[in-house]
Structure formats: C-alpha cells, structure tokens
Nucleic acid binder design. Sequence first.
DNA 1: TAGATATACTTGCATACTCAAGCATCTATC
DNA 2: GATAGATGCTTGAGTATGCAAGTATATCTA
Lengths: 140, 140
Amino acid sequence: MPELTPQLSLLLQSAALWSQLIKRADSQLSVHGISFTEFSILHCLSQAPLQQLSRIELANGVGLSASGVTRLLAPLEKIHLVEKAQVARDARVSLVKLSTVGAQIYQDARQTLGYCAEQFAAPLTPRQQEQLADLLARLA
Amino acid sequence: MPELTPQLSLLLQSAALWSQLIKRADSQLSVHGISFTEFSILHCLSQAPLQQLSRIELANGVGLSASGVTRLLAPLEKIHLVEKAQVARDARVSLVKLSTVGAQIYQDARQTLGYCAEQFAAPLTPRQQEQLADLLARLA
DNA sequence: TAGATATACTTGCATACTCAAGCATCTATC
DNA sequence: GATAGATGCTTGAGTATGCAAGTATATCTA
C-alpha cells in the first residue's frame, strides 16, 4: 500500500473538517429558522447593489444549480424574507430582493454565525487565521 | 451594515471552496463508478486493521449518520466492493470488510483523486501546502 | 435471573439538492 | 420581420442524505 500523497491527504482532511463545520453552523442557525444555505442566499443578497440579484447570479454566488435556487427561494418568499421583482427590459429574469424582515433576520443570523465562526477559528492565532484565509484565497 | 468579521468571512470562504472541490472530485471519480463519499468509505476501510470496521466506526470515520452508512453500503455490497462479516462475541455488530475487488477499485480511484488533489493544490507551493495542512490539522 | 437500559443497526418519512426536459422570452441573422 | 439559437427559469424524477422510531442483542442491577 503506497503512502498517501500530501495533496490527497489535504483533500481528505478538508472533507472531514467541512462536514463537521457545516453541521455545527446549521444547528446553530436553526434558532433563526434558516439553514446555512439559506444564510448564504441572504448574505449574497445583502452584499448586492440594491440588495437584489437574478436567480442565476444567486446560483453562482452560492454555488447552487438554478433549480436549487428556485426551490430554496420558494419557502423564503413564503415567509417574506425575500421578494420578487421584475426587470422591465427583460421579462425572463425574475429578481430576488432582500426584504426588510429578511435583512433583519440576516443581521441576527450573522451574529450567531459569527460566534460559530469564532469557535471554529479559535484554535488558531489571529496571525494564523490570516494565513489560512490567504492560503484559501489562493485556491479559489 | 457592519463589516464581516475575519472569522466569518473565513467560514464563508471555506464554504464556497468546498462545494466546488467536492463537485470536481465527484465528477472525476465517476469513471470508477463511485462517489466521493463511497471513496471515503473505501479509504477508511483500507486504513483499518484487517481492512474491516463496524458500521458505527465507519459512520464516525466518514462523518455520516448510521443510517447513511447502511444505505451507502447496500450498493457497494451488491457490486462486491465490500463484504459482510460477523463478530462472534456480539451478534449486534455487522462488520464491513474491503473485498479484493474493492481494494483494487480503491487503488485506482485513489490515483484519480490524487490527480484531482494535485490540481486543487497546484496554486500553492509545496511549502504553502504544508502550512495549509498544518493549519487545518489544528482546526480538527 | 428478570427487567431496565444501552448499543448496533435498519427502515419510513422528510429534506435538500441535481440533472434533464420544458416553456417563455430575448437576440441575431438572413 | 421570421426563424434559429441562446438565456432565465420551473418542473419532474432521481439521489443522497438526516432524524425518529423500531428491532435485536448485550449488559447491568436488584
């Protein structure tokens, strides 16, 4: 049995870490009634100009398929965290806009996720956290 | 709108990166007829003494629930990549053992995933890869 | 040694996606 | 300006999980 290459063990290592992390984030966000993916949606919207994006832009932003976005957005619309809007010059696109309520939930959830992220990053010194962010940025 | 904390943006950054990575790994592994999760199963087994583990150990090893393991294992058994075995002293546990065929598929898939991991890590120098592995190890 | 509790699974039901196909609309070409 | 192709989105069907509840077996305690 040959040794694992460092790159492969890096990948496996990331895998284990990630699934753990997502579970923790999801469970902590559940008090706000949203999942991590839904948080990502709200986050994307909140960063967008006018706090609105087309569904395709949103899909790219959160790394989901177009159909995934459609299905994910339905419940968020139902509870009025986001709203539909139309583009005059193109009847195909259906814009998604962060509602006032949505923006508030996002802020609250961000607080919660912030704590989660702190716990996550706690084993590292601030200097190391910077390093890690830098290394990850190079990978993207 | 307050600024994102560095920890939170670290978490969001990892999220985006990870979903990308898994998709690439899955698509490259598909030529061997297995998913990344299935690869993880085979990997866990191959590292275990006697190349066998109980389903619970396997679940912990790959970060899945017990039921997830049960369902994942069914098709792997059907195509004879793994085999069932029993423990004499405890009739509850059902051991899973890597078969000869399974070990072969694992080796092949590992090769493929190795390339994938290399591509992934390519933007980093070997020194940086080491650093990254070290930082991730601290997080676990 | 009988019953209570814990453990190792499995199964039913729900959720969160994906891909392929379909529909509406836009754009470009002749 | 008709028609062919591209684009944005939705929907149907399938896959990959998780959680809660159920079953079988083991262990502990009175």
